[in-house]
Design a protein around this nucleic acid. Structure first.
Length: 260
DNA sequence: AGTACCACCTGACGGC
DNA sequence: TGCCGTCAGGTGGTAC
């Protein structure tokens, strides 16, 4: 479930492996992965160019090419990258593969096809066109209080709304609320200043910690909910049972004793 | 401005 | 053994 920390990880992976090499071919093996562009157009725009820089906004990864345009990746729920040598086999659900002149490749694997690959001439325009709010890690407390906490909706829904703040999905909203000890069904506009500040701090801490842990559940601190996201599991803080509830159709995991 | 529900998509899993 | 329903979840659409 790629959310902000996972995508930040993919961005670093791409920086580490795929930069400053000429793309010789773009092979799209399932064009349902494409949005608003054809495989031919993508090939035309990318072949002969290099990735020169990357940026991330929320759950979107944008990779600038030497031609000046940007390849845009959204990972849906099952997307990830694999960089490999020419002799390596592509990952099982590779939907698009960029081959470099030296024979190495960067594959965009996306089992459930909920991810997207597209193209934009201007990064800023793309972010605006998707109506994305500020990236969750670039949001100061004041904007958070205005943009997110002004909503007359449940706090979990507000955190997950990409127009309010970009980058938080189902899993990390649960973690943030667990760390802040706030019940996910609380109406966010009814939190007092103290609890709101607590929530904001938890948001930052959780996302930064998750990035440090490379979004690998086993590396998370002992008091994190994430490795215990299953009904009836023991709460890592109080030992009580983790509950599974539905919030606007989404599954939320929480500890009723810790979160009020 | 909210909520609720559906569709997209694949694969794992439980029930029978 | 296999078939069928359900679920996972990011996003986007529609109806209320």
């Amino acid at each position: 479930m790629p959310e902000l920390p996972d995508v930040e990880n993919f961005r670093r992976y791409m920086e580490q492996h795929a930069m400053k090499q000429v793309v010789s071919e773009v092979r799209v093996t399932d064009d349902r992965i494409l949005a608003d562009i054809s495989a031919d157009q993508l090939q035309e725009r990318m072949a002969g160019n290099q990735f020169v820089s990357t940026r991330r906004h929320g759950k979107y990864l944008l990779a600038k090419m030497s031609s000046g345009g940007w390849a845009v990746f959204h990972f849906g729920m099952t997307g990830f990258f694999v960089y490999g040598a020419s002799a390596d086999v592509y990952p099982k659900h590779a939907r698009a593969v960029f081959t470099f002149e030296d024979g190495h490749f960067l594959a965009f694997d996306c089992q459930r096809l909920l991810g997207r690959l597209t193209w934009t001439d201007t990064g800023e325009d793309y972010i605006a066109s998707q109506k994305l709010g500020p990236d969750a890690l670039e949001l100061d407390f004041k904007s958070f209080a205005d943009k997110v906490a002004g909503a007359r909706t449940m706090v979990k829904s507000a955190l997950m709304n990409q127009e309010r703040v970009a980058g938080i999905g189902n899993v990390y909203s649960d973690e943030i609320l667990f760390q802040a000890r706030i019940h996910p069904k609380t109406t966010i506009s009814r939190l007092d200043e103290d609890r709101l500040e607590h929530l904001y701090q938890a948001l930052r801490d959780v996302l930064e910690t998750a990035i440090e842990c490379e979004a690998v559940p086993e590396k998370f601190p002992a008091d994190y909910l994430l490795p215990h996201r299953s009904e009836g599991d023991a709460c890592p803080v109080c030992g009580g049972r983790i509950q599974k509830i539905k919030i606007s159709g989404r599954t939320a995991y929480m500890c009723e004793k810790c979160q009020t």
